[in-house]
Write a protein that binds this DNA or RNA. Structure first.
Length: 640
RNA sequence: GCCCACGUAACUCAGUAGGUAGAGUACUUCCUUGGUAAGGAAGAAGUCACCGGUUCGAAUCCGGUCGUGGGCUCCA
């Protein structure tokens, strides 16, 4: 009988008869201990089932359940188990669409006349538990497309037929699990006995193939682990994440509010949130001053004609609010600040000698968002951009972008964000400007990124209509990423507004414009900050840096004295001089996440000191007011 | 915008055989003056999101509107 050689990545090698099944070969190749945790294999680099038949010399690597690949396989298989449960419970006439693994679980899309309910969740989970206990095998068959089509025609699974039609290979894989046959690339677990900890999490609508013009399907989300304990800890972490939800903390800490009577997606900054925003803005302005930016202020509305000139009505119209009629002239709420900055540019003739002109503005813009897209501070209809526009010559471009990146990363660092994902987006389908301009701008962005030594991902076709862009997504402490910074080159607006400058040659030239926002939207950035710090802001940002707690009414005079002294020295301080017990006051200050509590009893009055309790429960020795102010000042130093 | 769920005092939530609303916290007043995470008592507080319908009668059933949540789509 013919033999083949199967080797492990580390070099061990053995001969086997042709047609040996992978898991049989593993018996000879690896220890029982390793084999026990093996759920799939990698054959010449490709993930395959443990039941794969091997026909030729190959390199084989066991895939263990404790790898991230193993987890993906488990979740994908769990999606199939859920589909089987749904079909068993609700009938095989239910249409199944797609069911992949996601970053933290899996989903499967179904098309069924009736909606699923939360009681259905329990039934489905119970059925899945049954299936898991029965250790149902996943059986893979490689069949011709024609065969697959006839199978799904017979089962009346239209979505699968559509999927097959788009597959180019002549053969496809069918996976059979009980009576459920699915079109699937695989690989899968050997059997359902591996399912030890899974849970259905939520139900949501999802368009077939993400197209809002097509059928809305019901998507069931769930997650799955090899160990029930891991599931439990995942669910616990979900609860913890909920605790730092900016919407909850925003309410508890009285930072911001969104109210029906005002309207959805419109943010009201409460005193504490406003103070925090002021701290952000002061810092932002100081940094921009250092980097030779000048500050602008512009209005919230402008004549509709200006938005025609800018091209926004054509290219951004669906995101703009309806026009308003003022004395028979049509006006629009601004969705962007750029045209106003151009208007300021136009106030006089410009020379290349003033370049680069760097104008920044904390500009509030209004954009129409579909109601379903709104989300706390993260997605709103009115928000303030930390915007800037730079007017320069083409030869300035690369350096300006480099400088922006530097300022950008510095500012983000001050807020504790040092992990990013960077994307370079190129020309979209709908665009203006010449191909040459696009290429020139894209090159400039690329070279700046490379000079700064930043790794980035190319995002083809995702640029804005007027130019290519760099987007920076920051990662918070929980590893979630948030789109904030954006740097966009624009060859278009200068042309539309026909702005120019006098060059060294005495002729008129068209400047290039760079749009950029670092924090993006103050609202969103605030939301990210709240979640990042779980509401326990660093001293330089905290709206209240210290709260004075007197022990009894006997210290009221001294409380007032300390309070006044600290205010005078610029410390953001509150006093809690209510007739309550110390424990009670400490608890409240703690819940409000105030960094420092200053406790004043008879001892402190006597020695003219304050006793400092930290947010973490520790105490500092008694000190004078001046000594405490030094601590606050030291802790408030940011960026060198 | 679309799918599903939800919308009860300032907050968190009870309130399913449909019979004109409850708790805890917060708030106000009083007692208490107590050193490191909730002292005690009393009181005030709700058009049960809004509009309409079914019913002798609706927070509870039905329809619509608005809003919120989880997704899809989209994005700062």
């Amino acid at each position: 009988m013919a033999e083949i050689s199967i080797s492990l990545p580390q070099g061990d090698k053995k001969n086997f008869p042709v047609g040996i099944v992978a898991h049989e070969a593993l018996k000879e190749l690896v220890s029982n201990k390793v084999r026990k945790n093996t759920i799939a294999v990698r054959l010449n680099g490709e993930l395959r089932d443990l039941s794969t038949v091997i026909q030729q010399d190959t390199e084989l690597e066991p895939v263990s359940s404790d790898t991230s690949e193993g987890l993906v396989i488990l979740r994908h298989s769990t999606a199939h188990v859920m589909a089987l449960a749904v079909l068993e419970l609700f009938g095989y006439e239910v249409q199944v669409a797609i069911g992949p693994a996601t970053d933290d679980g899996f989903y499967y899309d179904f098309d069924r006349g009736e909606p699923f309910s939360s009681e259905d969740f329990e039934k489905i989970e119970a059925k899945m538990t049954e299936i898991a206990a029965a250790r149902v095998p996943f059986v893979m068959k490689r069949v011709s497309k024609a065969k697959a089509i006839s199978v799904f025609k017979e089962k009346n699974q239209a979505y699968k037929l559509e999927l097959i039609a788009d597959i180019e290979d002549e053969e496809v894989n069918l996976y059979q699990l009980g009576d459920f046959v699915d079109l699937c690339r695989g690989p899968h677990l050997p059997d359902t006995g591996w399912l030890k900890g899974f849970k259905l999490l939520r139900l949501a609508g999802a368009y077939w193939r993400g197209d809002e013009n097509r059928q809305m399907l019901q998507r069931l989300y769930g997650t799955s682990f090899f160990d029930a304990k891991e599931l439990k800890s995942y669910l616990y972490n979900l609860e913890e994440a909920k605790k730092r939800d900016h919407r909850k903390l925003g309410k508890d800490l009285e930072l911001f509010t969104i109210q029906d009577q005002v309207g959805p997606g419109l943010i009201l900054w409460q005193p504490k949130g406003a103070l925090l925003r002021k701290n952000i803005e002061d810092f932002w302005k100081a940094e921009h001053y250092k980097h030779d930016y000048e500050l602008l202020y512009t209005p919230h509305i402008a004549r509709r004609d200006m938005w025609k000139t800018s091209g926004h009505l054509d290219f951004y119209g669906e995101n703009m609010f309806s026009p308003m009629d003022i004395d028979d002239v049509s006006y629009q709420l601004k969705p962007m600040n750029c045209p106003f900055h151009i208007a300021i540019y136009q106030t006089r003739k410009r020379s290349y000698r003033e370049f680069p002109i760097r104008w920044c503005e904390l500009g509030t813009v209004y954009r129409y968002e579909k109601t379903g897209a709104l989300h706390g501070l993260m997605r709103v209809r009115g928000f303030t951009q930390d915007d800037a526009h730079i007017f320069c010559r083409p030869d300035h471009l690369a350096e300006e972008i480099f400088n922006i990146l530097e300022l950008n990363l510095n500012i983000l660092k001050a807020f504790g964000f040092e992990d990013y994902d960077i994307y370079l987006s190129t020309r979209p389908e709908k665009y203006v400007g010449s191909d040459e301009h696009w290429q020139q701008a894209t090159e400039a962005l690329k070279s700046a990124l490379e000079k700064k030594g930043l790794a980035y991902e190319l995002d083809p076709g995702e640029g804005v209509f007027y130019g290519p862009k760099i987007d920076i997504k920051i990662k918070d402490v929980l590893g979630r990423s948030w789109q904030c910074s954006t740097i966009q080159v624009d060859f278009n607006l200068p042309e539309r507004f026909d702005i120019s400058y006098t060059g060294a040659d005495g002729n008129e030239h068209q400047p290039i414009m760079i749009h950029r926002a670092l924090m993006g939207s103050l609202e969103r950035f605030f939301g990210v900050l709240i979640e990042h710090y779980a509401g326990a802001f660093p001293v330089w940002l905290a709206p209240v840096q210290a709260r004075i707690l007197n022990i009894t009414d006997a210290q009221l005079d001294y409380t007032e004295e300390v309070y006044r002294a600290l205010r005078k020295l610029g410390v953001r301080v509150e006093k809690d001089d209510r007739n309550e017990k110390l424990n009670y006051k400490i608890r409240e200050a703690q819940v409000q996440k105030v960094p420092y509590m200053l406790i004043l009893g008879d001892k402190e009055v006597e020695s003219k000191t304050v006793t400092v309790r930290l947010r973490n429960g520790d105490n500092l020795p008694a000190m004078s007011v001046e000594e405490f102010v030094d601590i606050i000042r030291k802790e408030s130093e940011i960026l060198n």
